[in-house]
C-alpha cells in the first residue's frame, strides 16, 4: 500500500544538541508505529516535527496528496489542551468546530458521558486525559500523533485507548505513538531513537 507519510533522513536538533539523525521510515494506512527511546532521546521532538510545530535540522517529510498536512493530523501532547473553566461538553464542541468534525458521540466513547457538564478543572488527571482523547474522535483525521497517550490513565483507560487505536487502524488511520510501555495494539513498526 502507498505510504501515507514518508520520512527520509530526518535529523532533529534541540537547543544546539543533535537528538537523532538519519531517521527514515514510511507509515502506511493501518500502521501503528511505536517510538521508543530513553528520556531526552527525542520522542516528543519527532512528533512535534511531524506535526509541523518544529522544523527539522535536515531531512524531509512527505505526506501523500496533502496540501495542508496540519489539517490531516491530531496531536496529543503532554498538555491536554483543556481550559479549567470550560465544561467537557463545550471542549468537544469547540474542537469539532475548530478541527472540523462531529462531536456527537465523542464523550460517550471515552466514558465521560456523566461528566459532560463538569468544568475541566474538577476532572481527575485520568479523566482529563480521556477528555483529550475525545478530541481524536471529535474530528476525523487520518494521522494521530500521540505522546505518552496512556499517561494518567487507569487500566480501563488503557484498554479504551487500545480500542480507539485499533478502531482507527481498521478505518485506515495511521498512529504514531511515543511510548514507554506497549499498549494492547500490536505495532507494525518500532522506532528506537536511543539506538539511532
Amino acid at each position: 500500500m502507498a505510504a501515507f507519510l514518508s520520512v527520509s533522513s530526518l535529523s532533529v536538533r534541540r537547543g544546539g544538541r543533535l537528538l537523532f539523525e538519519g531517521l527514515s521510515f514510511d507509515a502506511a494506512p493501518g500502521d501503528l508505529i511505536e517510538i521508543r527511546g530513553a528520556n531526552g532521546a527525542g520522542k516528543t521532538s519527532l512528533l512535534r516535527v511531524i506535526a509541523g510545530f518544529l522544523r527539522p535540522a535536515r531531512g524531509a517529510l512527505q505526506f501523500k496528496d496533502r496540501a495542508d498536512p496540519q489539517a490531516a493530523l491530531h496531536f496529543l501532547g503532554h498538555q491536554n489542551g483543556l481550559k479549567g473553566a470550560v465544561s467537557a461538553h463545550a471542549h468537544v464542541d469547540y474542537w469539532a468546530r475548530l478541527l472540523r468534525g462531529d462531536a456527537s458521540d465523542a464523550l460517550d466513547r471515552v466514558g465521560l458521558r456523566t461528566q459532560a457538564e463538569l468544568p475541566a478543572r474538577v476532572l481527575s488527571q485520568g479523566q482529563a486525559r480521556r477528555l483529550a482523547l475525545a478530541r481524536l474522535l471529535a474530528a476525523p483525521r487520518p494521522l494521530w500523533l500521540l505522546d505518552e497517550p496512556a499517561a494518567g490513565l487507569d487500566a480501563d483507560g488503557r484498554e479504551l485507548l487500545t480500542g480507539l487505536i485499533d478502531a482507527h487502524r481498521r478505518n485506515g488511520g495511521v498512529v504514531l505513538a511515543a511510548l514507554h510501555e506497549s499498549l494492547g495494539s500490536a505495532p507494525s513498526q518500532t522506532l528506537d531513537l536511543s539506538a539511532a
Binding site: 506535526a51 510545530f53 495542508d68 489542551g81 483543556l82 481550559k83 478541527l99 472540523r100 478530541r135
Partner: peptide, 17 residues
C-alpha cells in the same frame, strides 16, 4: 500565555482556519 501553557495553541495550529 494560557493557550501556550495548556496546549490550546497547538490545537489552533492544527485547524484548517
Amino acid at each position: 500565555q494560557a493557550d501556550l501553557e495548556d496546549g490550546s495553541l497547538e490545537q489552533m495550529l492544527l485547524s484548517e482556519a
